[in-house]
Simulated scan of single mutants.
Amino acid sequence: MTHNVKFLLVDDLEENLLALDALLAREGLELHKARSGEDALELMLGNEYALALLDVQMPGMDGFELAEIMRANERSRHIPIIFLTAGSGDATRKFRGYEAGAVDFIQKPIEADILRSKSKVFFDLYVQRQQITSQRDELATLTAALQAADQQKNRFLGVLAHELRNPLAVLLAGLNFLERPREGLDLATVRESMRRHLSHMTRLVDDLLDINRIEHGKISLRKEMVLLSDILPPALEIAGPAIEASGHELQVEVPDDPVTLNVDPARFIQIIGNIVSNAARYTPNGGKITVVVSTQGDKVSITVADNGVGIPAEQQSIIFEMFEQSDNGRGFIGDGLGIGLALVKQLVELHGGEIHLVKSAPGEGSTFEVQLPLVQ
């Protein structure tokens, strides 16, 4: 972002300052005026100047003394200085000025064209420097983003390889068992294991395809008016196997009055099923998961709470980001690719809703809330 360029005008006579203001005024330029060296130094404390025009002959601190102080100060030492002088232009005087840090001298009475031409050089140089600085900062930001994306990609590929290798190994082993049956082998168990791992791989691929469709604006919701009581049970059934396998208690609370939503039923089931499945996955055996539905004004709130391992505070800000998983240090690292909550967030927002992590603490569990528009 480019800010206005600032020039500092220093002269003890108000009429001289007004004349300089009139000569130099242009769009994008701020002219700050000081009647003494002390006033000028105070202005430099809070401003960055592209050029300082200093009158040489001022009572008290003259222009040369002011320039020497400027050059000794880290903040002001790089400000270009042009001296304005009504005195003689002898070599000794000019030498002292250049020694004090001047880049030029302009004799009074000032020729307007010369002043404008010389000041324009410093105006343009400052603008170019601002642009270069801005481009440098943008490049640094882009470089950091690319490095982060590369790290994220590598992390994702590692997780993907792990997630696909295990089911593939099971499928290959199962196929070998089916081709060369062994005595006492329960083929029904082999088929069920193959089916379960194939379903896991299919879910991973489906999630990846959904993320890609959303990011490219190619996913469309097939909304319809539905009763929450009709689509909540199928959503909970998705997490049923994980809940049953871990011996969790599932408690569901819904309002007595009918709750009508305008949603894509399949995507709603995906949203709630994913959150409840996460709760089951991150809760040690024998835990409790609670799903509570309530209406709040023109919204319906669906909270999913568990008494599981919880999410460390430093990780709570990234749980809705792509390929991020919570590692609570207690051995519970979620399976999958770390895209579940990121996908849920995008699906909820496509419905005009919001999802929040209400609270979470290690060893105490987590509570998520989904808010969706309510059909009155």
Rank of each mutant, 00 (worst) to 15 (best):
P255R: 13
T260C: 09
V252T: 07
V252F: 01
A280S: 12
T283L: 06
K288R: 14
A279V: 13
V276S: 04
Q251L: 15
F268R: 08
P284N: 07
D256H: 09
I289M: 04
I289D: 02
T260K: 11
P255Y: 06
V259W: 07
L261I: 08
G286K: 04
N274E: 14
P258N: 06
N285C: 03
V259L: 10
P265V: 03
V291K: 09
V263W: 00
P255E: 06
I275L: 10
P258V: 10
P255K: 14
V259R: 06
G286A: 09
V263I: 12
D256T: 14
A279Q: 06
T283W: 09
D256M: 13
V254F: 03
S246E: 13
V252L: 01
G247N: 12
V254W: 01
Q270N: 15
A245F: 14
D264W: 01
K288A: 15
G273S: 06
P265I: 06
I271A: 01
G286W: 08
V254H: 00
Y282R: 14
S277G: 08
S246I: 08
G286E: 04
I289L: 12
T283A: 08
E249F: 08
N285F: 07
T260V: 14
V291P: 05
A266E: 03
N262P: 01
V263T: 01
V292E: 13
E249T: 15
V254D: 02
G273I: 12
V263G: 00
I275V: 15
P258W: 09
E244D: 15
V292Y: 04
V259C: 04
I272T: 06
I289W: 05
N274W: 01
A280K: 02
I275C: 07
T260D: 05
V259Q: 04
E253I: 14
P284Q: 07
S246Y: 11
N285H: 12
E244P: 05
I271N: 01
I269C: 07
S294W: 07
F268D: 08
A280Q: 08
S277Q: 04
I275Y: 05
H248D: 09
Q251V: 15
N285K: 09
N278K: 11
P258C: 08
I275F: 07
S246W: 08
T260P: 02
G247W: 11
N278Q: 11
H248K: 14
I269G: 00
G287E: 03
V292G: 02
K288E: 13
S294N: 07
V291D: 09
G273N: 11
T290C: 03
N278S: 10
R267M: 12
D257L: 13
A279S: 14
Y282G: 03
I243A: 13
P255I: 12
Q270C: 11
I271T: 00
S294E: 14
D264S: 04
V293N: 02
P258D: 14
V263E: 00
T290P: 00
E253R: 11
G247Y: 11
